[in-house]
Simulated assay, not measured.
Amino acid sequence: MTKQIAIVIDSLAGGGAEKVMLTLAQTMLQGGHNVHLLVLQNFGLYEVPDNLSVHYWKASKNERCDALWGMDKLTQEFLVWVQGIQRQVGKFDLFISNLDKSNLLMSRSQLEPTYFVVHNAVAEELKKERRLGPVKYFKMWRAKKALDGKKLITVSHGIEKEIQSSGFVHPQSVQTIYNPFNVEEIQRQAQAEVNGLPQGDYMVHVGRFAKQKRHDILFQALRKMDNELPMVLLCNNTGKAKKMAKKYGVEDRIILPGFQGNPYPWIKHAKLLTLSSDCEGLPTVLIESLICNTPVVSTDCPHGPNEIMTGPLAEFLVPCRDPKSLAMAMDKALTQYPDTQTAEVLSQVSADNVAESYLALLN
């Protein structure tokens, strides 16, 4: 039976949560369901397929959809907007809410049935915001506490365990559903011809330029490596990345093509993909790299890498904030690496299977 699904998300900025929700939406569409993206702020780097219905609440990121004061008014405006969409397209059978602003509004709106997707470790995000000042910390704290009594979906077992053990959030229920990956589509896109690919061998790092991604650790590891292959950084804010690379003396080792809507050719042709993060949810790029048959080296950060890199691949997990260990693992991966297609996780992240898991929530 055809279902009416609403995926609610803050924006279509170039992050992992936005990417996997677009994949989930397209997979549900192909399964014959009606899917609508309800996007709070109209900005971002991802293109929406023509066959996917998208509704924007605010015209730009400059229009506020959360505030220290006045959330009652904003919530009422949001609820009127959603109800207007339902009058046009029909009542939604399921709401899937993503990211803090959406989760806050959806929790206050009490639209049912709603499942709230937790893409990152709650404790780590709160710790990061605490360093940015009391206002940012309060807004993050408020968004996380809004998950009390709600039905949660976590994208890794590590996040699920953290929620259950920390006691900060007391959900009605919590379960893990891995992010969806359209394996055949990723492999098809990886065959595309793109301008700017390096002529020789190279390594790659994919991720926004943010403290969580620890480019400083990556650059220190580059200096300690025996191998002198260049590192391609697919990130936003290339100016800051270049400045930091210069600080660590590896400016001549990095290539900065900027954010790529299709990163897969860059990943496929790389000799190695490296993740140097302090924390993750379920790091999309590790799975995408394995799908592209490119070896991966990662910090064993909370949460996700140790659920992806199991069996022989676990040898290439290294401690966080340890440039020497990261450099050694990268050097080794360039000379000897297990068959990436043996990764157990690849059978668990099929987009069709993940979509079925979400649809099963209706039962």
Rank of each mutant, 00 (worst) to 15 (best):
V174W: 00
A123S: 15
P134V: 01
E124W: 10
I159Y: 07
K161N: 12
K139R: 14
L126I: 05
S173D: 11
F138T: 01
Q172K: 02
Q189N: 12
A192N: 13
L126Q: 11
R131S: 13
H170L: 08
S109I: 07
R208C: 05
E129M: 06
Y115F: 15
V118F: 06
A210M: 05
L126M: 15
V169L: 08
E125M: 12
K145L: 09
R130C: 06
Y115T: 14
Q175K: 10
I163H: 05
Y137C: 05
V194H: 04
K145I: 03
L111K: 09
Q175F: 02
G167L: 05
E193F: 08
E185M: 13
H157V: 14
R142I: 03
H157R: 14
G133R: 01
N179V: 07
V206A: 00
E193A: 12
I186A: 05
Q191R: 13
G196H: 06
G200D: 06
I159E: 05
F116D: 01
Q191F: 05
R130W: 15
E129Y: 01
I153N: 07
E162Y: 11
D148V: 08
P171T: 03
L111G: 12
A190T: 06
E162R: 10
R208I: 05
Q110F: 09
K128L: 12
A121K: 06
L132K: 15
L132V: 06
K136W: 00
